[in-house]
Design a protein around this nucleic acid. Structure first.
Lengths: 239, 239
DNA sequence: CTTTCCGGTTGATCTGGGTCAATGAACGAC
DNA sequence: GTCGTTCATTGACCCAGATCAACCGGAAAG
């Protein structure tokens, strides 16, 4: 595989075929008719990001929006003293670049080699005017994200460490369509998981060990887990 | 004032004048032209709720959407064992009743006498088809809520008790447009504040005392506070 | 008036998860 | 191979906030 260094980003100038895009049915672009896809393809700028590369930064002018095509991004907010809260991990088909007003409200960084289609915000708004289904689709996507955010508030405000980790693994397995018994890849670090769950890396590590010793996870290593007992994991998640 | 008991709800059958609605400029209805307002007025069903009355319940079929006209609602999610996370307090102009799929994703309950305009979901979707600006406005509202939810994730995952309470008071004062030195009404109980901030009532109470003793708050009582030093409160909020 | 109730405050004590520290395992660089 | 680096795990100890408990004050009922 092509090697991408930290912070290196490659902007591919080659032509893009939205018509044959694998993630289109999942993504906001799935709302567009065939004749609009050519227009879309002319205006998109895919960006390739190596692990750790920054796509957008909180507070910067929000000039672009993105659709994740492959890989995974983490979205996060920082406090001045460095405390970090990861608000989500974005996978192929997900929409990134929401802003309220002029600036991005979170930073986005690749957790593994990642490709994202970039659109100018103004162009995207123009497309929404021309194709109302696009706006309807985006409303659905943002509503789904808001629902997920409210679930995460319950997790962060009221769940124990074990419930948090179990909820996280279940939710990720669901989104990535990994069945029980199969390996669930965890491309993010323990530090990322901790900052998503409102814990420390030590507690995340200890809690992985607990879940393994209790038999809910069959295998735990740096890069992934195997879910042994998905029902028990769901019970451990608390709701 | 008319007395409304807990759980009592009154559905007002009288005619409604959306044209002269005080919260319309704030609300989603503000996107509609004058001629659409008559149609809206014919189809809305204002509901009056006494303190503690339930407007919607998580998991119930999501048949209606609402705009808060006066008072305040709390939105919350429950775990089977009774742990509760309040995901937001909704004030006049706010939109309530988001669902993903068929069911409501949260419960909503009045914290004080409250009026909300009810619309059938199907009717509201029809209006969005006829008036695309309505959908655009709703997308903006949901995006703003998602941004607030991400801020709340940072609060719940990474902030101390003092930072949480300071953030909450600042945010509420901003939304209610209460200036420093004026009284900020807190119609919700300490238990509601605790369940919003991921704390216990004891910690909320102690933290109010700390903020008062440090001079950031001039007055603290059951029903409200007076912010003495808004800059210090902003510093205490952590970002 | 007294009583009960309910929400809030304060104090004493406990504990889940944080902090600090040591160790291990994987991976490039040389 | 041997460093150095980074990430993960584990153990020992600590603390912010939870829990348990006492008490207070206003409002409603009798």
């Amino acid at each position: 595989m092509e090697r991408l260094d930290k912070r290196e980003t490659v902007c591919c100038g080659a032509s893009v075929a939205c018509e044959s895009c694998a993630v289109r049915p999942l993504a906001v672009c799935g709302a567009l008719p065939t004749d609009a896809l050519a227009r879309l393809a002319r205006m998109t700028h895919p960006r390739r990001l190596g692990p750790g590369a920054t796509l957008i930064e909180e507070g910067e002018p929000a000039l672009d929006v993105f659709t994740v095509v492959e890989g995974m991004l983490k979205l996060y907010k920082l406090m001045p003293d460095g405390r970090r809260q990861i608000t989500g991990f974005m996978i192929p088909g997900d929409f990134v670049g929401l802003s309220v007003g002029e600036a991005y409200i979170y930073s986005a960084e690749a957790v593994m080699p990642t490709t994202a289609c970039r659109f100018r915000r103004n162009f995207f708004h123009g497309m929404m005017e021309d194709y109302p289904d696009l706006e309807t689709r985006l409303l659905g996507i943002v509503s789904t994200e808001l629902a997920a955010a409210q679930g995460q508030m319950l997790l962060l405000g009221r769940k124990t460490a074990k419930e948090r980790l179990a909820s996280f693994l279940l939710s990720l397995a669901g989104r990535l369509e990994v069945a029980a018994g199969d390996r669930l890849a965890l491309p993010m670090t323990r530090s990322d998981i901790a900052d998503f769950l409102g814990l420390t890396i030590e507690t995340v590590s200890r809690t992985f060990t607990v879940l393994r010793k209790e038999g809910l996870l069959a295998r735990v290593d740096k890069a992934g887990v195997v879910v042994a007992d998905i029902d028990a994991l769901a019970r451990a998640a608390g709701d």
